[in-house]
Simulated scan of single mutants.
Amino acid sequence: MFTLIKGAELYSPACQGKQDVLFADGRILAVGDLQAPEGYATEVIDGTNKRLLPGLIDGHVHIIGGGGEGGYRTRTPELQLSDAFGSGITTVVGVIGTDGASRTMAELIVKARALEEEGLTCYAHVGNYHIPVRTVTGKIEDDLLLIDRIIGVGEVAISDHRSSQPSFQDLAKVASEARIGGMLSGKAGIVNVHIGDGQEGLSPLLEVVEKTELPMSSFYPTHINRTENLFTEGLTFAKNGGVIDFTASTVPEFLADGEVKAPRAVRRALEAGVSPAAMTMTSDGQGSLPSFDASGQFSGLKVARVSALYEAVKEAILEEGADPESVLRTVTTTPANTLKLPAKGAVETNKDADLVLVDQDWEIDSVWAKGRRVVAEKTSVVKGTFETP
């Protein structure tokens, strides 16, 4: 079965005006002024007065759940398939956070494979907040080389009271092993770094770059919008060759404490001259959003949602007035390039048919994941194995 979307305004993510897109067997076959192939069954979708976007890439999701900072009952639930699809997300990268004891790499890889079987493209990073990294094979390089789902390391925590307080040598060794593993496997080989609100900020990463031959691109720091100071530091990091990540999920308490909301962070970064090729947004979905009192004691928790990612995209465009092409790059081409996912991030011939059709208000109408329609007329039509139909 061929599918032909006709007459939509195409953002690939660069705006290309009205274009038709033909796809089958999970791949995009042609883009342009097209007609249905003669002699073949073809579903034709009317894209009039709609926009067609690449499927979103969410590079930071706690697919097996996270949390636990407030005890056993505060462990957050795992990702549900329809939550991702309903938010226009067709590719995710799974991570483990604070809890590297009961949340294991075996669980993470099995969940990634389960989501793949259900139609969502899913990769993973090896490790969690703490160093030494808990690998599967015993070596970071071997995990990257031998396990197809693993594309990097993380999220390793710094500048946070929940981190393992890694030394310069610790960070340099992990980054070196990740880089070598990436080179050998043809994968990203990056270190996804959780940046807390501590005073050190990005300085541990900058020290590694300054004192070793490792490039700034070895690190992919997230939560850069956590504080105003960290945001400012992150802009410099991005302008000097790094890629930074803004977290879309938040709560009023975080914003009151000085967090820069992700849509505003994107707009301000663009205005400051940061290229959209140097920044991404992710949801931190299923992660915990914990609160701590002045003495560092746990005081409450909410759960981050993957839906925050597309909500941030809309807000950046509609409320912050940021350029749509630039905003879309932060959730499509930039993560695809950063994570070395060549089949993702754009609506082009031979790319995966991961597509999102939205209306004039940027509300999601339909979603295709590798050519399979998973959302139709604003309704999820594909559910996870154990979701209620």
Rank of each mutant, 00 (worst) to 15 (best):
A8T: 02
Y11D: 08
Q19P: 07
Q19Y: 12
F23V: 01
F23W: 04
D25V: 09
G26F: 02
G26L: 07
R27M: 15
I28P: 13
A30V: 07
P37S: 10
G39S: 14
V44I: 01
N49P: 10
K50Q: 15
G55C: 13
I57F: 11
I63F: 12
G66K: 10
G66L: 05
E69K: 05
G70H: 07
G70S: 05
E78M: 11
L79N: 05
Q80R: 15
L81I: 07
S82W: 03
I89N: 01
I89M: 06
T91N: 09
V92R: 12
G97V: 06
D99V: 07
T104H: 05
K111S: 11
R113I: 05
R113D: 09
R113K: 15
A114C: 14
E116S: 15
G119A: 13
L120A: 12
C122I: 07
Y123P: 07
A124N: 03
N128P: 00
Y129T: 03
H130L: 11
H130S: 11
I131V: 09
V136W: 03
K139I: 14
E141Q: 14
L145P: 04
D148V: 01
I151E: 07
A157W: 04
A157S: 14
D160Y: 01
L171Y: 09
V174M: 08
V174T: 08
A175W: 05
E177C: 03
G181S: 00
K187S: 11
A188F: 06
A188N: 00
Q199P: 05
L205D: 10
E207G: 10
S217Q: 15
S218D: 11
F219P: 08
Y220W: 13
H223C: 15
R226S: 06
T227C: 03
N229W: 01
T232F: 11
T232N: 12
G234D: 14
L235D: 13
G242I: 01
V243E: 01
T250C: 07
T250H: 08
T250D: 03
E253Q: 01
G258V: 04
K261A: 09
K261H: 02
K261E: 01
P263K: 09
R264Y: 11
R267L: 06
R267Y: 06
R268C: 02
L270Y: 13
S275K: 00
G287D: 06
G287E: 08
L289E: 04
S295T: 12
V306E: 08
A312V: 00
E315V: 13
E315T: 13
L318S: 04
E319Q: 15
G321T: 03
T330G: 11
T338I: 13
L341D: 12
P342V: 04
A346E: 06
K351E: 02
A353M: 02
D354F: 05
W362L: 09
W368G: 02
A369I: 11
A369Y: 00
A369M: 05
R372P: 12
R372G: 08
R373T: 13
A376I: 06
F386D: 15
F386E: 12
T388C: 14
